[in-house]
């Protein structure tokens, strides 16, 4: 791999990694408050892609919009994706997880429910919207936006990078500076004491899911813009983002962001060195290595303690 190729793959990796970071936040938030691996988060992401796709298919004109119109359609797509993602996450918590919490069910039962919900959701999407991949309608003329160290960054990649960073900053603010964020952190630290202090746990859990769902949905839209939208699109990014959350220290929001970036770069470097067939192997190997060497992740676990 020559130096210019290295920069190309690095930039690609950072773009991809910022998406993984946004998805990983959803895993890490839910893990923080419920100690649950929410397998169905990858389906929230997928529905986000479909949300954007549906809204844009219905609204976008025949000719590719330009100027302020492009911005408008991007905003519509992203909001629709986030809204559907948030709605699916909300419904998921309400229908699948809340009854289990009421029963104080063992963790195995939560995991099986999560897998079942994931299976149900992606097959439902396949049934409703067909089982082929669809590209997002063109919202702007895609071309080179700027050049970094000789690596060309397209408009789509710049869009992903900017919006992912914006979302992460916003989320960091929400978790660390707002009342809702302190509720989330309180429940993550000690749900019983939080309840005694007057925190409504059901509400906090529900909001945590919605928060993760909004981010996951928007990430789904961005992912769909970059490649395509199809009903199993959540699976591999989901595993990778989960690995990112573990890498950064599960339950730790800033750790998830860092882990996402690292895994994005690892993935593109794997592609650069060994070819596209082995794209997802790198992330998995990193996951197992992290579990062997430093199971609490780079920045340490637990939402309440470190974030």
């Amino acid at each position: 791999m020559s130096l210019s190729e290295f920069w190309d793959f690095l930039v690609l990796g950072v773009v991809l990694g910022s998406l993984y970071a946004v998805i990983a936040i959803g895993y890490t938030l839910v893990y923080g408050v419920l100690q649950l691996l929410n397998f169905a988060h990858s389906e929230v992401f997928m529905f986000g892609g479909y949300g954007g796709l549906l809204a844009l298919t219905a609204l976008i004109p025949e000719t590719t919009p330009s100027g302020m119109n492009s911005v408008l359609y991007v905003a519509i797509g992203m909001l629709a994706g986030a809204a559907l993602g948030g709605a699916v996450a909300f419904g998921l918590e309400r229908v699948a997880y809340r009854p289990l919490r009421r029963h104080n069910a063992p963790r195995l039962v939560f995991l099986i429910t999560a897998i079942g919900a994931s299976f149900f959701l992606y097959n439902l999407a396949g049934k409703l919207f067909g089982r082929n991949a669809l590209p997002m309608p063109a919202m702007y003329e895609n071309g080179t936006a700027l050049t970094v160290f000789g690596a060309e960054l397209t408009v789509t990649q710049l869009l992903i990078l900017v919006s992912a960073v914006a979302m992460m900053v916003l989320l960091d603010y929400v978790v660390n500076r707002t009342k809702m964020g302190s509720g989330i952190r309180a429940v993550a630290q000690d749900p019983e004491v939080a309840a005694l202090m007057g925190v409504d746990i059901d509400k906090v859990v529900s909001r945590t899911f919605v928060l993760g769902g909004l981010l996951g949905g928007a990430a789904g839209f961005l992912f769909g813009t970059n490649s395509q939208v199809w009903y199993t699109m959540g699976f591999l990014p989901g595993i990778t983002a989960f690995a990112a959350a573990v890498l950064g220290g599960i339950g730790n929001v800033r750790g998830a962001m860092l882990g996402g970036l690292v895994l994005g770069v690892v993935e593109t470097m794997t592609v650069g060195l060994w070819g596209d067939d082995w794209r997802y192997v790198g992330a998995f190997v990193v996951l197992v290595l992290v579990l062997m060497v430093r199971p609490t992740g780079i920045l340490g676990e637990r939402l309440g303690r470190t974030a």
Partner: peptide
């Protein structure tokens, strides 16, 4: 799809 729903309902 039905099997996924069945898992959730059973749990």
């Amino acid at each position: 799809m039905y099997l996924g729903a069945l898992l959730v309902v059973m749990m």
